[in-house]
Design a protein around this nucleic acid. Structure first.
Lengths: 118, 118
DNA sequence: TCCTTAGTTCAAAAGTTATTGAACAATTGG
DNA sequence: CCAATTGTTCAATAACTTTTGAACTAAGGA
């Protein structure tokens, strides 16, 4: 089972900007950027909204081509499509993330790391 | 009579991105960027919509801090707030404009330059 | 002064997006 | 198999955005 993603050349500038024009989604992207290389599951973002609501926002990000969601068991591992976005819109993601990092108005994702049993 | 504009430090990242996430407004910004230095009045954009609708979109851009509108007689002279945006969100406007320039899906502003009487 | 040009405002309608809860599916572990 | 975990889907609602036309204001020119 794989989820639908646009190809790189199908990623649309106004759609990406519109999707990023929401504080919850910008907070998701900022957090993904801060954990680059690590695949996060949806539960990581529960600080930002209900499970249902996150499913909605994460679907928007995925359908816009901003994130990739890989199905691993019952989890969806979420990553930023950084290389694809850089290829399509050079510099855009970097400047958005740099600005988002400095934005105190964005909601924060608490550092709820997965606990390894001791 | 002056119109309300946010100060540079009041410009919000999600609001700017949201405002740019609309093909009509992105086309306005792209056209303003292509005529940088020139102040354009609203009628320049009539290819993109009705007078009323443009008034709405131009107000959104102005209220978000993307453009500046100066009242000159019965005209509003519109410019991009490039320096302010560069200061607040370095690189963002450049990358958005570069991507918009290459976007064939955006509506075009016909080159309706003001005719000087012969 | 009267007419035109430029643009705004208002209210209504249409369309879109966000949020919610309940029900569902799929995988994993016991 | 059973229960728990992870996340989706659906339908309803609430909230916002876009578009429209008619009425309006303000400045400028004849």
């Amino acid at each position: 089972m794989t989820l639908p993603h646009p190809n790189t050349d199908q990623i649309s500038l106004p759609i990406v900007l519109g999707v990023l024009g929401d504080p919850t989604r910008l907070a998701i992207v900022r957090y993904l950027a801060s954990k680059e290389g690590v695949a996060l599951n949806c539960s990581q973002f529960l600080d930002l909204g209900s499970k249902t609501n996150l499913s909605y926002h994460l679907a928007k990000l995925r359908e816009a081509g901003v994130t990739r969601a890989e199905v691993v068991g019952t989890n969806r591992m979420i990553t930023l499509r950084r290389a694809d976005l850089d290829a399509r819109f050079p510099g855009l993601l970097d400047s958005v993330i740099a600005a988002a990092v400095d934005d105190p108005a964005l909601p924060a994702v608490g550092g709820h790391d997965i606990e390894m049993p001791a």
